[in-house]
């Protein structure tokens, strides 16, 4: 190739997609390809999913069914822990995935490159979370399948209960992803916020009662109040009522959970978008899109 040919190649106006949805699809596709490139990792992750469910089955053999039923959650610890374990992975994905992916792009020096393309950055950021969502979906389906069909956990999977479960689940994703956006905005600027998000997710998981009935927190009123500040607490309570107790959408507790999650979402989504925009604009202004 001679010089004029190379120059001509650079001058060619390539058709670019202005559709945000197509851009989103492209980012998700890229994430999916990267995920599938590590096949052994995927297989191991699936196996560890299976192992964690079986582990809680054996833990459940030690649980006193009367103690559990006194908390109002039936007598099966496996069913109780299954809902918590299956959904808590999404909690982690929502809170930590985006900030982690952005840091990965910054470290790899690719965020700057992407930022100078005509991509809609919001679509790019949403697309980055896709990998975490996909892995968590595999985990969720795997946990429920092994738990229900392999180990005999009794969960109510009727069309009605699934419908209410999906409403609660979507509200859980929206409200927690909004928190994830706030975290990503802060981490983009201050670079070293990963441990803060990590502790937020760990404390959230602990206070929401993933592995124990929240009624036990009554002995510690401060912790009980703290647990009510996290949207996941309401989501988990609602999802358990629906899947374990077979509660409908008209159940007062389920309705309250949906309402509270709706309020959380309405408050947190605008805040999350604002913080993400603030963080992104600030690193561009300061020229630190490649600093870590």
């Amino acid at each position: 190739m001679n010089q004029p040919e190379i120059l001509q190649l650079f001058r060619v106006e390539e058709k670019r997609s202005k559709s945000s949805l197509r851009q989103l699809f492209a980012v998700v596709w890229a994430q999916l390809k990267m995920m599938l490139a590590y096949k052994s990792w995927l297989v191991m992750d699936l196996l560890s999913t299976l192992a964690s469910v079986v582990m809680y089955y054996f833990v459940g053999l030690q649980v006193d069914p009367h103690q559990l039923s006194r908390s109002g959650w039936g007598t099966s610890y496996l069913a109780f822990s299954l809902v918590g374990v299956a959904t808590s992975n999404y909690l982690w994905a929502c809170l930590t995935r985006l900030s982690h992916s952005i840091q990965h792009e910054i470290r790899g020096g690719t965020l700057e490159t992407i930022a100078v393309t005509p991509i809609n950055m919001l679509m790019f950021f949403i697309g980055l979370t896709a990998r975490g969502y996909l892995v968590s979906l595999i985990y969720l389906v795997g946990v429920f399948t092994v738990g229900v069909y392999g180990l005999g956990a009794k969960l109510s999977f009727t069309p009605q209960s699934l419908f209410v479960f999906i409403i609660l689940f979507v509200l859980m994703l929206v409200s927690n992803q909004a928190l994830g956006l706030v975290a990503a905005g802060i981490i983009m600027v201050y670079k070293r916020g990963d441990p803060l998000v990590f502790i937020l997710a760990a404390v959230n998981e602990f206070l929401a009662g993933v592995l124990y009935p929240l009624e036990l927190l009554k002995r510690f009123p401060a912790l009980q109040v703290l647990s009510m500040l996290f949207p996941y607490t309401y989501a988990l309570d609602g999802m358990r009522r629906v899947l374990i107790l077979g509660a409908s959408v008209f159940d007062v507790n389920v309705l309250t959970d949906i309402l509270v999650l709706g309020v959380f979402s309405m408050l947190l989504v605008p805040l999350g978008l604002k913080m993400l925009g603030w963080g992104y604009d600030r690193i561009r202004r300061e020229g630190t899109t490649s600093s870590y």
Partner: peptide, 20 residues
């Protein structure tokens, strides 16, 4: 924070032990 997060595991099983 890493220590704090690992301590949440211990706290979790404190509550689990109440029903075991």
């Amino acid at each position: 924070l890493d220590i704090l997060s690992s301590l949440t595991f211990v706290a979790t099983y404190y509550f689990v032990s109440m029903i075991i």
